[in-house]
Write a protein that binds this DNA or RNA. Structure first.
Lengths: 209, 209
DNA sequence: CAAGATATCTGTACAGCGCTTAGATATGAA
DNA sequence: TTCATATCTAAGCGCTGTACAGATATCTTG
């Protein structure tokens, strides 16, 4: 491509309202939670009129899509980092911990991410393709030194099972019923480690969050 | 108690508007999905004014609580039924299947149920108490003939791990990426069976949905 | 049966929401 | 300089959750 005609539209008035809107949304999300994420509130936070966002996003859900997309990118990056940090046999555990820790540290963002996933009924990145999505990272790590390569083990199914467990734990780790367990085990991190190891698909204990 | 003073409030005008509202909500939920569940729409469906529900529910979320509560009761009943149907070594698998099947057959209701759970940050029924909640049922079944009673097995953690896996699968089983797997395995039911069995905590395959 | 207390429901209203439309304004191209 | 176009504002529609005043039906008490 040439330089800056078809590549980037480069807005005029605001500089980059699209960017500013996504940032404002993330700021609101962290400060006030997912229920405060109205289009009008985002526009207010960004200092523009309520109708301005419609020149950059088809509707509200498209804005949330953009926020969620950045969330998935961050999650992918953090999991890649965890994988690079530990190349030993506990890599899978490290990935699981990284996943759950991200969700626990960014609960509002994780909720927006999964709201979008539920609406689309699909994980955000192509599972088939050999891209570097988190899902494929888990699957590949499973091949390298995953669970026992028994006769009945189906790679894709094992990956799905692991993903389901990690997602379930990510959503439920904060439940009040489990607080006594966290104390018993010595903190939330130990609790996450313990539950993941009981899932069988994340084999040993580790330290990577 | 005597007859009808402290027992049931028995409303006057409508007969039992509270009941009618919950039923209307469930009807709307099944017909139009969770996004159509506005308080006004429920009141419309029940044939009363928009303000009428406020004499029976503090606010909208309390109405949804009631709907979700009935959902959990139904789920508990279906799991108890599954447990009674098969008293053999595959009881745990039957419970897992019953859980996921309920969620898959009542997706909108399951969403309302878990929205409430996420908001309260707690499972709906007391996990500690020895009541007959689904959670306790899973735990007890695990004791009776669950996974291997190895040295490192912590009953509560194993139950949580199983619950996380089942919830994850319940939310993700419908994802488009998994359709080719369902075909490969011969239907969604076989897919659910296979993923659950890969979780390790639900041991063998079974037939109970 | 009469009458007052109370629970239930209606009508109306308000602020906030997502979104649309028409018009103003700033920018890039001719 | 002029025009086309991209960007933003102002105003408004129908919807939402919720509050309040008043009407009405039922229960309770005499």
């Amino acid at each position: 491509m040439s330089q800056a005609k078809t590549a980037e539209p480069r807005p005029y008035h605001h500089g980059d309202l699209r960017r500013a809107l996504v940032d404002a949304a993330r700021r609101l999300l962290e400060a006030e939670g997912p229920s405060a994420l109205s289009l009008r509130a985002v526009a207010r936070e960004a200092g523009v009129s309520p109708a301005a966002p419609y020149h950059h996003f088809k509707d509200k859900s498209e804005l949330l899509d953009a926020v969620a997309h950045e969330g998935w990118e961050t999650l992918n990056a953090q999991m890649a980092e965890a994988k690079a940090r530990d190349t030993g046999p506990h890599q899978l555990t490290g990935l699981g911990i990284a996943y759950v820790c991200f969700a626990r540290e960014n609960p509002a963002l994780y909720r927006v991410m999964y709201d979008m996933v539920r609406e689309k009924e699909a994980l955000p990145l192509d599972v088939q393709g050999d891209n570097d999505s988190a899902y494929c990272m888990v699957r590949d790590t499973m091949v390298e030194h995953g669970a026992d390569p028994g006769a009945e083990t189906h790679l894709e199914l094992a990956t799905i099972a692991a993903w389901c467990g990690a997602h379930g734990l990510a959503e439920m780790a904060g439940f009040k019923q489990f607080e006594h367990l966290k104390e018993e085990l010595g903190g939330e991190r130990a609790f996450l480690d313990a539950v993941l190891s009981h899932m069988g698909l994340f084999t040993a204990k580790h330290g990577a969050c």
